[in-house]
Design a protein around this nucleic acid. Sequence first.
DNA 1: TTTAGGG
DNA 2: CCCTAAA
Length: 610
Amino acid sequence: MVVKRRLNCGFDFSSIPKAPRSSRRKVSSKTDDVSAIDLLASLAGKLLEESESSSNSTNAFEGFSHQDGKMKQEHVYNHNKPCKSDFSHQANLASSKSPSENTSDVSLENGCVLEQTPVSDCKSAGGVNLLVGCVNKKEDCEFHVESGGVTEETGVVNVDDGGLIADTFSLKDPSQLPVQSVPNGYRNRSKLVCRDDDENYCKYYKFSDKCNKSYRPLTWSGGHRRIKKSVVTKYGRALPKSKCFEDTKTDGCLKALHRKRKLCYGYNPWKHETVHRKRRLSDKGLVVNSDGGLSSESVTNSPEKGESENGVLSTAIGLPSEDSLVKFSIKSLRIPELFIEVPETATVGSLKRTVMEAVTALLDDGISIGVLVQGKKVRDDNNTLSQTGFSCRENLSNLGFTLEPGPEKLGVPLRSENHVMSKPTDSTKLPERSADSLACADYVINSTNCVENKQELLPCQIDEQKPSSDSRALVPVSALEPEALAIVPFNEKPKRTEASQRRTRRPFSVTEVEALVHAVEELGTGRWRDVKLTSFDNASHRTYVDLKDKWKTLVHTASISPQQRRGEPVPQELLDRVLAAHRYWSQHQVKQNGKHQAAATIVIESGPSM
DNA sequence: TTTAGGG
DNA sequence: CCCTAAA
C-alpha cells in the first residue's frame, strides 16, 4: 500500500478519497463538499500567483495566525519508496484547542503531518489535546518515541490520531509558533484511533480487564463507509470512473496526488506551465483540461456575482488583479492524533510500519474539509465567501480549514452540475513557482530514512519561506515534473480505479485480539455487533463481520500447530482462551437448544475463560 | 441490519 | 476480507 503513496503535500489530504468501508453502505456524496476543496485549492493557487506578482502578498498570510497553543508532534511521512516502512516525518508546532476547535489552525508544511497526542488528555481535558511538534525547529520535530513512551515502562508509543485537521497559520514565520515540551503522557494503550469530529472525539473503549485503558482504534467513529463516487473534474464535470482516480482504500494517496495535480494544473493559475505538459498529464489520465487555464468566462466573473457556489468558486479563481480575491494558503494539512502502540522491543522498522498503517487507516477512512471562520465552522456550503465573512483579506486571519474524518461529510465526489468550476485562464500558467516546492517535495520523497532525513526535510520547507517571497511558503504542489507525477499514480496502481476496492488488509494486533477474546468471552460468539460496540466501537475499520471473521480465524489458528501458524504470532495464552471461549459458547448454544443438558454443562464449566 | 458461513 | 443468504 505504501509503496507508491506520496503524502507530502498538505493538499493531498484534502483530496484524499474516502475509501469505502463497506460496500453495503453507500453514502451519497455532497456536492457542497467538493466546492470546499476546490475553493481551497483555488485560493491557494491564487495566492501563489498573487504572491508571485506582488511582494505584498505577505500581508495576506500574516493574517493566519495560529491560534492555539496545542502541542503537537507531527510526522511528515511519505512513501515514495518501495519500502513501505519508508516514511519521513517531522514535527510541527501547533496550537492546542479543544478537539472541536482545533481545526482552525493551519500548519504550513510540505507534507502530511501526524500528530502525536496523549489519549489521556483527550478525555481528561474534555477533549483538549496536547500535541507536540514544531514547524521550524527540527530539533524539536523529530518523532521522539521516547517521549511517547517507547522507553517508558509501558513500552508503548501512543499516537492518538484524532480527526484530520488542516491548520492554517501565518505563512510568515511558522517558527514563531510556541514550542512546548512533549508531554510524557503517552502511556495509555495505543489507539489506532481517529478522532471524529467534536463529540466523537473522546470516545474510547474498554477492551479488557487487563487493559482497561481507553482504546480507540484507528478510525473515526463513523463506522465503515464505502462511498462510490465519480470524480469531478476541475471544471465540474464528472469524469468516467475509468479515467479518474476512484476512491479506493489503497489508492487514497494516489487520488490525493491526483487532486494535487488538479490543484496545480486546474486551479492554480501558476505560470509557465505549457499546454503540452498539461496534455501529457491528461493523457496519463489526470483530470486536466486540455485547453487548460481558466476559462474566459470564469475570469470575467466578478466576485460580487458569486452568489452561488459557482460564484464562489469563480471568485476564488478570479484574476490576480482583482483586489477582492480571497487569498490564502494552506501549507499543510495535519493528521493529528495518530495513536500508535508498539512494544518497546519493536524495531524501528516495525514502528514505521505501524505508523504507516495508522496513517493508511486514517486515510482510508476518508476525510472531509471543513471551513472555519473566526473559529466557527461554516456549515452552509452555499454561502459565498463574503457572506460567510471572509471575503476580505483582513479577515483571512479568521479563516481556517479542517481536515476531518468522515467522507460522508464531504462527499468528495460531487455532482457535476453543482460544480461548475472555473477553468484556468491561461493554459500556459502553471506552477513554475512550484518548482522550488517541487524540488523540495521531491527531496522529501526521496528521503529514505524518514527520521534521519527529517531534519533535512525541514530545511526544505523552511527555505521555501523566504521573507521576500511568501509564495514560496506556499504548499509546494509539485508540478515541476509533470511526467513523474503523472506516472506515479497511473503506472503504479493503474487498476485501482474501482470504488469497491478491497479494503487494505489490516492484521489484528495482539492487542486487538486480546480485546476480541475478552469480548467474546463475555458476550459469546453470536453477538458480533455487541462485540463491536463494546470493544471496537471506535475502530471503524473493524466491522462486526471482521470481528467475526477474526474469531473464526483465531479458532482455526488455535486449532492448528504453532508451526502452521502465520503472521504475527498470537500468544498461546490468548489462543487457549479462544479455544476455551469457543468451547464454552458452543456449549452455551447447545444449552439454549437443550436446556437440561446445558445446565450440566454450565456447572462443569464455570466459564469460558479458563 | 445482523448473523452465519462459504469463498 | 469479501459476498450473501437468511433472519
